[in-house]
Design a protein around this nucleic acid. Structure first.
Lengths: 340, 340
DNA sequence: ATGAAAGCGCTAACAC
DNA sequence: GTGTTAGCGCTTTCAT
């Protein structure tokens, strides 16, 4: 089994072109000096033989393969029919793939090894991008121990100042949304947050608490697992709207939660946005297609992914570029759920 | 630049454990025979040194790295804000990643090289999965020429019987949907199709034409690019509904198109499904969250991806397993748009 | 401008 | 049960 593929080697090309392997190598890499005519002969021979340089052998010398791993947390729950953060993740993965390719790297999807030795596949990666690292991430610990370059997209809540994590600026973004809710008439703003122990949830909560405190309002926080999606949002809405003094505005961390809260409000005959304003911290299919559409933050994963790939690739290549400062690019997309 | 990472080698471990490199290799791979006590000593030394076997050097011997490439067509259009087939693709990619990992492979996202030499990143892949291959696919030609294992997910319309393409059974699936539209009261069934020259569109069209012909109905086909999404669907709906004898049922190839057609019908005051029945050939966020929700085919990308990975991995390993026969797993999810 | 030779880190024969 | 040896396909000094 597993008969070795009978590809032409650099030796075959060399023989056919009547030169040495070295010359072939030079002709392809641009290193050294090769006469234009010789280069032509080599290229010709290579084409005839269908020669493709072996990336593995090449990698052996540089101990790099040109593969970046993208560790995707929501990839894992096998039982989940739908994925959380579909939009965001897919846009991120696509942008990261394209950015990586432009840099000469491939992007490999890697499930969270969760401390397992199923991490064998990760061995071929030169470095890792970790989306939504969680507090004291075991994967981060492992990569740190093995001295493998990595970059968290989102800070480790437990290590605020680490150079290994990209700050998303969640606090500032959330504050902007809350200000918008207030500007559109919200006076009692509640928050529906997720449960994963990552920067996004932690900082959103802190920002919300600071915001209500500054306005002498009381805080109302409901938590629902990200994976519970729209149904979780409805449940959260039911909980909020049956309070003695219900909110007139709700900040929802995820787009799905927002859609659920909205549906619950409408089911109760509330007018949106007159009776209740709703905004989400993440744009998604749900916020766009809800009735009415929901104001949401477009997190702009594309520039984020490009930045992340650039930083990681630099590190893989041994050049530490400083992390960009300030909150990630983003845009509050104002829709009918807060606009009247 | 690019200082070689100073990882411990198998030699370092061997020295520290007082054995030979071979023994270390055996201790890790399980090949050969190693005394339990020796193995312990080796493992201990490896742990102390933070040794991780080098996947590249290992791959050099087997000339395989354990990486499968997933060529994703909709990955490419950089200008598109939203992706077509988001749901389907993401579910496919996730399932393929997990299936690959279970098999000991990683899954690398690869943009369509489109005949370019940007394909360097593809060099590390042991084989490729090509989603939605198009007619006379240039990538397919290239891989065939280079003798690189690959598997198209969806047939090449130009090569019906090739063993290199998984048949999705589109014709049969579409026929089921059309039958359902008729059963729910549709008498004049129109079709809104996409424009990509792949099996999905070609076979859907053929199936539709055969179906109306068998019922002595006249065919009404409107084509809209997949990328035009919901807006394209609305335009298609406008075109259909302003006809002298408008359809009372519409089969839409994509979920986005279906949502647009539905919106257009509702904007004209048509009752769904009393006046107009709508069904989609692909389930998506749009079909699920439309008002009312739209009947759609869940293409079940998960089992498809698992099958595709299994077949491809076999081929990479030199064992040609026969392609499964019959249409891919799927389920017609009947929703209010056809159910009254 | 070109080539010979020495590995990169690992595994597979084959001795012992 | 363990070690020796010989490469995998390529790049890279360093001669010529």
């Amino acid at each position: 089994m597993a008969r070795k593929r009978d590809r032409a080697t650099i030796q075959d090309v060399a023989r056919r072109a009547g030169v040495s392997a070295t010359t072939v190598s030079h002709a392809f890499s641009g290193n050294g000096t090769v006469a234009a005519e010789t280069r032509e002969r080599v290229r010709e021979a290579a084409r005839e033989l269908g020669y493709r340089p072996d990336a593995i052998a090449r990698g052996l010398r540089s101990s790099r393969l040109g593969v970046l791993g993208l560790v995707v947390r929501p990839l894992d729950p096998l039982d989940a029919t739908f994925l959380e953060g579909v939009d965001y993740f897919l846009r991120f993965a696509r942008a990261a793939t394209l950015a990586a390719v432009e840099r000469g790297y491939g992007l490999m999807l890697v499930p969270d090894p969760a401390g397992a030795d199923a991490f064998a596949v990760g061995l071929v990666c030169d470095g890792f991008l970790i989306t939504e690292p969680v507090e004291d991430d075991p994967l981060v610990a492992m990569l740190t121990r093995d001295r493998v370059p990595f970059l968290g997209v989102g800070r480790d809540p437990a290590r605020p100042a680490s150079e290994d994590f990209l700050d998303l600026g969640t606090a500032q973004i959330v504050t902007e949304v809350l200000d918008h809710l207030a500007a559109s008439g919200g006076t009692r703003v509640a928050a529906v947050l997720g449960t994963a122990p990552n920067e996004w949830n932690r900082d959103a909560e802190a920002a919300y608490l600071a915001w209500v405190a500054a306005r002498n309002q009381s805080s109302v926080i409901v938590r629902r697992a990200e994976i519970d999606g729209e149904a979780g949002g409805r449940a959260a809405g039911a909980e909020l709207f049956s309070r003695p003094s219900p909110p007139d505005a709700v900040y929802c961390q995820t787009g799905r939660h927002a859609a659920g809260v909205l549906a619950e409000a409408r089911a109760r005959g509330w007018a949106v946005p007159q009776d209740i304003r709703i905004a989400a911290g993440e744009d998604s299919e749900q916020t766009r297609s809800a009735v009415p559409p929901v104001t949401a933050v477009d997190l702009r994963p594309e520039p984020l992914a490009r930045t992340a790939v650039a930083v990681l690739a630099d590190r893989v290549e041994g050049a530490d570029r400083p992390l960009p400062a300030g909150p990630a690019d983003h845009e509050l997309v104002i829709r009918a759920s807060t606009r009247g």
